[in-house]
């Protein structure tokens, strides 16, 4: 590997991939590799974060990401509690900042935040003493998703460098694509993205990717194809005509997958819309690593928590 890992993650927060250096990304991925080993043991727990408190502050519906953080926290022996917007005082008119200050008054060490509005984690990171981890903010970033995707690619390919990764789907509304492009480009991969032109945000190429309008152009010869969820709930009726037509032009089907390399990995951050952006024959096929991504998510989140808490080297067992 050409990128040397940083010795430590010297930062309070993880608000995005954008602020991270290649060395820091490498360190997180290397640490996540070690964390994977913990899950393989009969007792899947280390005391690394014993006595630390983590608040999972989810202001937007999420099952996978929240559970993944919760499992990661438990495996590190942290005390964690979760709450979601519906159950909070936010609906009573309290501002985000007031809610966060109230949480902080209970002296947690970490606040993991998922929010519908871009930038909310940055605004909290500025005023809170706790470490803020971005678990997805609006259409901005989802750094732990990009890290778990990178870990998955690396496990199969040995390296990110030189890999050709195609990301296809709703680029306009996806935080996953932003974090992934930033991370993969920074680590030396070639990233191609594709979407109908009405779902390509202006200046997308400046994130460090090639922009295509046809899925075929993006996946030709690719090492990895990552499909993004068509966020039906975020679409008006004007961005593309119908799901039926979307499938016709943009879904990853077995026929289209043949354009990629023979051993091309198929990825999806979930939740999948089967029959919309991805055909079930591909999603469940031999090249799919979609469930491995979920497994690796726990390891990556353990690594991030551990490193932000000041940890380095391998966490020791009891």
């Amino acid at each position: 590997m050409s990128v040397k890992p940083a010795a430590r993650l010297r930062r309070k927060d993880l608000v995005g991939i954008d602020p991270l250096s290649p060395g820091e990304i490498q360190l997180i991925l290397d640490t996540a590799d070690q964390m994977r080993a913990i899950a393989a043991r009969p007792i899947k727990k280390v005391p690394a974060l014993r006595g630390k408190t983590v608040v999972n502050f989810f202001m937007e519906a999420s099952t996978r990401t929240r559970f993944s953080f919760e499992v990661a926290e438990k495996r590190l022996s942290a005390d964690s509690l979760s709450f979601s917007a519906a159950a909070s005082s936010v609906s009573k008119g309290e501002t985000l900042v007031d809610t966060a200050l109230n949480l902080e008054a209970m002296q947690p060490d970490f606040i993991v935040i998922r929010h519908v509005h871009a930038g909310a984690p940055h605004q909290l990171a500025r005023i809170l003493k706790s470490s803020v981890i971005n678990a997805g903010d609006g259409a901005h970033e989802h750094p732990t998703q990009a890290l778990l995707d990178a870990l998955t690619i690396r496990l199969h390919r040995g390296t990110l460098e030189g890999q050709v990764v195609a990301i296809v789907g709703d680029l306009q509304h996806s935080r996953v694509v932003r974090s992934n492009v930033l991370l993969l480009a920074r680590m030396g991969a070639t990233v191609r993205v594709a979407a109908p032109p009405s779902l390509i945000p202006l200046g997308m190429e400046k994130l460090g990717c090639e922009v295509h309008r046809r899925i075929e152009d993006a996946i030709a010869g690719a090492d990895v194809v990552m499909m993004l969820r068509i966020q039906l709930e975020r679409q008006g009726r004007m961005n593309f005509p119908t799901v039926r037509e979307y499938y016709d032009f943009f879904a990853l089907t077995p026929e289209r997958l043949k354009l990629a390399k023979k051993d091309c990995l198929v990825m999806h951050p979930g939740p999948m819309n089967r029959g919309v952006e991805i055909d079930s024959r591909v999603a469940d096929g031999p090249q799919s690593v979609i469930l491995e991504q979920v497994t690796n998510g726990v390891a990556v989140r353990m690594a991030v928590l551990y490193l932000l808490a000041g940890g380095h080297g391998e966490p020791t067992a009891d």
Partner: peptide, 13 residues
């Protein structure tokens, strides 16, 4: 403003 900065920040332009 809609453009590369808004795209990077994930804000609607």
């Amino acid at each position: 403003h809609e453009g590369a900065v808004a795209t990077r920040l994930g804000l609607r332009g």
